[in-house]
Amino acid sequence: MTLLEARRIEKTFGRTHALRGVSVAIESGEVVAITGPSGSGKSTLLHCLSGIMCPEAGEVHYDGRRIDTLDEAARTRLRRDAFGIVFQFGRLVPELTAVENVALPLLFNGDGREKSATVARDWLERMDALDVADARPGELSGGQLQRVAMARALVTGPKVVFADEPTGALDSLAGEKVLGLLLEAARVNGSTVVLVTHDNQVAAHADREIVVRDGAAAGVVA
């Protein structure tokens, strides 16, 4: 079943054509890598697929519903309920401890402080980061930051996990460890994973690769 689909989407930033009519379809439960050289538009594709941005032309569908025509509030709701997102540098709130960062999405959903913290600790344990639960982001290594960020993305049990260069700031061994934890957790959750990466070894963790070149899907290779 196709869970997430982009149909001939286009997006420009000023004079740059970031996307020129990309079409991709992502099945439920699969791990897809979106690869391409830097500046190929792969991050923009991820932003459009995840409803962070809206394309200027074309359509984006999620779970049988068109999402690029939804207003900001509805897309925010969708991102919160159905998606989890991980970025390259973790981007944790610097003033909060690791466990508070992970609990944040639950708190925003109105769960109580204690309950959120318990669930957050559970996720930190699954991400092998329980030992840094009470540390602040400034005290963490790149790999630890990324594991906390992944716990934050997974804590709400999202249907789709988007990861934009999740291992970009890590060396290959640390990256492999972090990626392994993410994919394992996603598999247990039954989440679909969309990985944006320029690293072939990261792409090799996916079931399938979508190559983006100059804002277009150059070949959807199974």
């Binding site: 962070i52 919160r80 970025f87």
Partner: peptide, 18 residues
């Protein structure tokens, strides 16, 4: 200072109002 962090929160589904 917090631009990227807040933008990330918003990307993960935190509403502008929040």
């Amino acid at each position: 200072e917090h631009g990227p962090v807040l933008a990330t929160l918003r990307a993960t589904g935190v509403a502008d109002g929040e």
